[in-house]
């Protein structure tokens, strides 16, 4: 990892050293530094306090800080590991690490399970699945009759609920994803491999040599 000696003072609450974050994620130190540039941009877009608020995530995703959405809320909640209403830099990097092309598939499957376990019961339940289907239909202005929605939910649920106990557990979810790998397509962001190109401003000032 090399010898790290920071000359910079990071006063941002929740800031963690790139060397520490790189050791715990698929990112290199340079990539973590580049992510800090992105983090600074996002965390100052509405409230300039070095923390990402929900409105700032909504602004980044929708170009509208007031647009609420079930899935954006879930993404925010999963990134906000400490559940204190904001995303800190360390939380941001560790969560994005799951989206890295080199992150373990197991982590991606686990993340999607938690994403869809809306009420955090440890299971994806039929009502949650229907709620998410209705949310995507509403979001996309797509009209489907309730009968069609029920049929889609029933079919999917019976395919995934191998034990037939009315809920999808993590093991069943893993099996279902293995049969339908496109379900974790959103969990890989190719951009993360090029993050140092997207946010290169740090390169001239970086103080750490990557070990890779």
């Amino acid at each position: 990892m090399g010898c790290y000696h920071s000359k910079r003072t990071k006063e941002t609450p929740g800031y963690e050293e790139p060397t520490v974050l790189a050791a715990e994620t698929p990112f290199t130190v340079s990539e973590v530094e580049a992510l800090y540039e992105l983090f600074k941009k996002l965390s100052s877009s509405v409230i300039d306090d070095g923390l990402i608020h929900k409105e700032e995530l909504q602004l980044a995703l929708f170009r509208n800080k007031n647009r609420r959405n079930l899935f954006a809320d879930r993404i925010f909640d999963l990134f906000d590991v400490k559940r204190n209403g904001v995303i800190e830099f360390g939380e941001f990097v560790r969560s994005l690490g799951v989206f890295h092309p080199n992150a373990p598939v197991e982590d991606k499957i686990h993340f999607t399970f938690r994403l869809y376990d809306l009420r955090q019961t440890g299971f994806i339940e039929r009502e949650e699945l229907k709620e998410m289907v209705l949310a995507i239909l509403h979001e996309s202005d797509l009209l489907l009759s309730d009968d069609v929605v029920e049929t889609i939910v029933d079919k999917t649920f019976s395919d995934a609920d191998l034990k037939g106990d009315g809920k999808i557990d993590p093991e069943e979810w893993k099996e279902f994803v293995s049969k339908n790998p496109s379900l974790i397509k959103n969990m890989t962001l190719p951009y993360l491999k090029d993050i140092t190109l997207a946010f290169p401003s740090f390169v001239l000032s970086t103080e750490v040599e990557d070990s890779e």
């Binding site: 992105l38 995703l61 929708f62 995507i136 049929t151 079919k155 395919d159 339908n180």
Partner: peptide
């Protein structure tokens, strides 16, 4: 077991949500 080729998987439908595509975070 028989399959229903014309029926979209509910999770595939959910995955179409733009909110689940975080690439928007990287747009300048």
């Amino acid at each position: 077991s028989p399959k229903s080729p014309n029926l979209i998987n509910a999770f595939q439908l959910i995955g179409m949500s733009s909110c689940l595509d975080l690439s928007g975070l990287f747009e300048k």
